[in-house]
């Protein structure tokens, strides 16, 4: 647990950018408690806090991936501000705007556009995972294994019975073309049998 203190802010951001598991865990260890306190003080429970923190983390991640992005405050402040904004928007959507917000820390102002973008992104992701599911075998598990579960091409070839990694790779690109077709169609998806 103590190890968490030895990260510098810049290291941590770089770790997040490289999808390092330890960095992501460290972010959670260091900053989740505060977000949880904030949400509990303002009419939510710990499950809400987990959801909001997850969303807030994705906002941070998306920004860190973008090279133009410069964080001009501490990670803690940034995450707190984003989560705070997400939670207040959520309360507004439920028609439960609080008369006064219990603050725990200083915060920076977060654009509404950022939150809207986050909601859009969330819809996109659920759309994408639905598309992946509807793709059918073998494409569905091939793509999920490679892109979501980080298997290597060779492992996938062994697992799914392709003669070599190159064959599996060609198959993967064919699957991607199909996925692209249904992902950008933007209509209601249903199973083809019904």
């Amino acid at each position: 647990m103590k190890l968490a203190n030895y990260w510098s802010e810049a290291d941590l951001l770089r770790g997040v950018k490289d999808n390092s598991e330890i960095a992501i865990k460290t972010i959670y260890k260091l900053h989740f408690a505060m977000v949880e306190n904030f949400i509990r003080l303002n009419g939510g429970n710990s499950q809400d806090a987990k959801d909001v923190f997850q969303d807030g983390f994705l906002v941070l991640y998306r920004n860190v991936k973008n090279d133009d992005f410069k964080l001009d405050c501490k990670i803690k402040t940034y995450l707190y501000s984003v989560c705070r904004r997400i939670w207040l928007t959520e309360l507004k959507r439920k028609n439960k705007v609080p008369t006064s917000v219990n603050e725990l820390d200083e915060f920076i102002t977060v654009d509404d556009a950022e939150i809207d973008e986050n909601n859009e992104q969330e819809k996109m992701l659920s759309h994408l995972s639905q598309c992946l599911e509807l793709l059918g075998e073998p494409c569905s598990s091939l793509l999920s294994d490679f892109y979501l579960n980080n298997y290597s091409m060779q492992e996938i070839a062994d697992k799914m019975g392709y003669t070599n990694a190159d064959n599996a790779k060609t198959q993967k690109y064919k699957c991607l073309l199909r996925l692209k077709k249904i992902f950008f169609k933007n209509e209601i998806l249903k199973k083809e049998t019904i």
Binding site: K25, Y28, F32, Y61, K65, L128, Y147, K180
Partner: peptide, 26 residues
């Protein structure tokens, strides 16, 4: 352009699932 968009989304989906798993582990 569509490809780039798709890869961006796949990457985000991966990190969303990964972070959920990691948070749960912590």
């Amino acid at each position: 352009e569509e490809n780039i968009e798709l890869f961006k989304n796949l990457d985000l989906l991966q990190i969303a699932q990964l972070s959920k798993k990691l948070f749960y582990e912590v």
